[in-house]
Nucleic acid binder design. Structure first.
Lengths: 241, 241
DNA sequence: TTAATCAAGAGGTAGTAACCAGTTCAACAA
DNA sequence: TTGTTGAACTGGTTACTACCTCTTGATTAA
């Protein structure tokens, strides 16, 4: 079942196979085969099995109990890839809504002190500033203002941003893999400009969100402010371990 | 430096030692010793070193680059234990504020359908309902309403809750270790009861927070609603991987 | 000078082996 | 009957070995 001379590691092939089994045939708290049983079934070492299981655990698919076994997590139901939680597009699809994005502006700016500090840039560098309106089922949900380091994304165009989700662009066009993200949540009364864009009364509450996204080399690849309408938008995050 | 016959595993002793070194003597992007160098320095196998490094990586202390080395993460500056982000007490201490908690009510209730569903309980079970007012430097910050499964915490008393942070009680009195948490954020106009408790005008915005906390066996050990005043409270979360 | 090559050293993957520490339950002894 | 014990599982820890891929920089060849 596993391909030894594949470019994709054995343990990762196992992650795929077991993950699929869990999603298709198992329910929360079902017991998995023991590590040693998986070894013989797939003819791999326990090292490989434990690597795969560690990965599944990090993804929230399974949990282990010393002396008892490994079990399917309740968390497995609605969570695949942690990265998806950062993505408005993926987030909305998961909720059964149709996401849509309008790019309101796209420009290259010189970073100010605040941006330089938060993005780990020198004050001389440039950043790409993108303002987007996000809609779900045609209802305006949030306004996002994103800053990307120009040095890493100099060839990025407005057309591309209009065509593809930002996180797909990161990965497919610039080989930037998201490794970590910091998010800050707060609430306030909605600013009038955003009230207009989101089509809500001027005294409404809104959810403010600030996100800093890091690549595998621990560099900031995105710094985003979002303002979301309070009556429509709920933001979900999951912590594991 | 490491103690072979200790009850605490070698790899975890290494986590402590390396973590301390990072916090005390290193800064972001500094290179760590290579895995093989650490092996000889502490006289352990590479297995052990890699286990420790994996742990440090999960904690956000370090990041690795294939072929180049292992480096101190920028994230290390302000983050130790992911669990601490759930804890109001720890969270506030980290911000240099003095946390205080007033227990407003403590009672055992029969769960309704909504609670039963969210806590994985049958409709017949009981829960402990605790309402707390959280203050930082004497300023009321948020009102938290928590539900704990009575079956797991039947011996919990109001006195204990007044004396100790809830998450310390979980760990020390009931051996419940937090493994994962789901959080949902939204914003709204503050309800009048909370407006009064938080001493803000009735038309203020507030941050609403719903948290479900799981133990290592993937059972819900806490379900909490929070209402926080928008002008004072910012909630930070970090995702890794 | 410039480009290709190669070796050293980094982390990544994989196997084997052995023993430790919880959990469970059946077999045995009081 | 009621304990207790102990074997047979579970995952957890540790060591050793070997080879892979990626990065870097020095050496070599064009």
């Amino acid at each position: 079942m596993l391909i030894s001379d594949s470019k994709v590691p054995l343990y990762y092939q196992l992650v795929d196979i077991l993950g699929k089994q869990i999603k298709e045939n198992m329910k929360p708290h079902d017991r998995m085969l023991s590590e040693r049983e998986i070894c013989t079934k797939y003819n791999v070492s326990r090292t490989t099995v434990r690597l795969a299981m560690a990965e599944l655990e990090k993804m929230g698919y399974i949990y282990k109990m010393h002396g008892k076994g490994t079990f399917v997590a309740t968390l497995a139901e609605n969570k695949q890839n942690l990265m998806e939680s950062y993505s408005f597009t993926e987030h909305m699809k998961k909720l059964g809504k149709v996401p849509k994005t309008e790019v309101l502006s796209f420009e290259v700016i010189k970073v100010n002190d605040y941006l330089a500090k938060h993005m780990g840039l020198s004050g001389e560098e440039n950043a790409i500033k993108i303002i987007r309106l996000r809609l779900a089922d045609g209802i305006p949900m949030m306004v996002e203002t994103s800053y990307l380091p120009f040095a890493k994304f100099s060839s990025l165009t407005e057309e591309l941003v209009k065509k593809k989700p930002l996180y797909e662009i990161f990965k497919e066009e610039f080989s930037q893999v998201i490794k970590a993200a910091d998010e800050e949540f707060s609430a306030s009364i909605i600013p009038s400009r955003e009230a207009h864009l989101l089509q809500v009364p001027t005294n409404s509450a809104c959810l403010k969100l600030e996100r800093t996204t890091y690549n595998t080399a621990n560099q900031v690849i995105e710094f985003t402010f979002s303002i979301a309408r309070a009556d429509q938008f709920i933001y979900k995050v999951r912590h594991i371990r």
